[in-house]
Computed example of a mutant assay.
Amino acid sequence: MTNLILRDATEADLSAILAIYNHAVAETTAIWNEILVDLDNRQAWFEARQARGFPILVAEIDGRIAGYASYGDWRAFDGFRQSVEHSVYVEKDFYGRGLGKALMAALIERATLGGIHVMVAAIEAGNQGSIALHTRLGFRLVGTHHEVGKKFGRWLDLTMMELKLGD
């Protein structure tokens, strides 16, 4: 990839992150929200992740933010503090270039170094590309919840995967 830089996100990246997020809301089933968010929303999200010590990584190509990845609490109870659920999104102009894999590999490394025990993936069951990527990265299929969400007028299934990082 031409001049790919993986780095921690800064507040200056939030408008690009916002655009990628809102595209996923409006055009895909990767995010099961239906309402576009504003910059204040992404600012609050950014600050909440920073306050918890969770990484937000961006993929930058030739000065342009091409994708981002992060993780947060899987469940908000003390007993789950070493398990996280992650998200990875690539800007539509950069699909199919391996950015998702690069971001995920970097995020897995950060999680391992951060003492995370398990990473959880919740993937729309029809997103075979994401399921295949997670499988290649060592995630195992846990199961599928059927018709637990609805978007674009149709019921959606949610495939659950997990990656154990350490003892």
Rank of each mutant, 00 (worst) to 15 (best):
1 M>K: 04
3 N>S: 11
5 I>C: 00
5 I>Q: 07
6 L>W: 00
7 R>W: 01
8 D>R: 06
8 D>F: 04
9 A>P: 05
10 T>L: 04
10 T>P: 09
13 D>Q: 05
13 D>I: 01
14 L>N: 12
17 I>N: 09
17 I>E: 12
18 L>A: 08
21 Y>G: 10
22 N>L: 02
23 H>T: 04
24 A>P: 00
27 E>Y: 15
27 E>V: 10
27 E>G: 01
31 I>R: 04
32 W>L: 08
33 N>P: 14
34 E>W: 06
34 E>S: 04
35 I>R: 09
38 D>F: 04
39 L>T: 05
39 L>H: 14
42 R>N: 08
43 Q>V: 12
43 Q>T: 14
47 E>S: 09
48 A>K: 14
51 A>W: 03
51 A>I: 01
57 L>M: 09
58 V>K: 10
62 D>P: 02
62 D>T: 03
63 G>C: 05
65 I>F: 04
67 G>M: 06
69 A>M: 05
70 S>I: 06
71 Y>P: 15
71 Y>F: 10
72 G>R: 12
74 W>R: 03
76 A>W: 03
77 F>I: 11
77 F>N: 02
79 G>E: 13
80 F>D: 07
84 V>G: 00
85 E>M: 07
87 S>A: 12
87 S>P: 00
88 V>P: 06
89 Y>A: 02
91 E>C: 02
91 E>W: 14
92 K>I: 11
92 K>Y: 13
94 F>R: 03
94 F>P: 02
95 Y>N: 01
96 G>L: 03
97 R>C: 03
97 R>E: 08
98 G>P: 12
99 L>G: 13
100 G>D: 05
101 K>V: 02
101 K>I: 03
102 A>G: 10
106 A>N: 08
107 L>A: 05
108 I>C: 02
108 I>V: 07
108 I>S: 07
108 I>R: 04
109 E>N: 09
109 E>S: 12
109 E>F: 10
113 L>A: 09
114 G>H: 05
114 G>S: 04
114 G>I: 05
115 G>A: 13
118 V>T: 10
122 A>Y: 13
124 E>T: 13
124 E>H: 00
125 A>E: 15
126 G>M: 08
127 N>Y: 01
127 N>G: 15
128 Q>R: 07
130 S>H: 11
130 S>Q: 09
133 L>S: 14
133 L>M: 09
135 T>P: 01
136 R>Y: 03
136 R>E: 15
137 L>G: 13
137 L>F: 02
138 G>A: 05
139 F>T: 02
139 F>I: 02
140 R>I: 15
140 R>L: 12
142 V>I: 10
143 G>K: 11
144 T>L: 07
145 H>Y: 07
146 H>Q: 12
151 K>Y: 08
151 K>T: 08
152 F>T: 03
152 F>R: 00
154 R>H: 12
155 W>H: 04
158 L>C: 11
162 E>M: 08
164 K>I: 13
167 D>Q: 08
167 D>E: 11
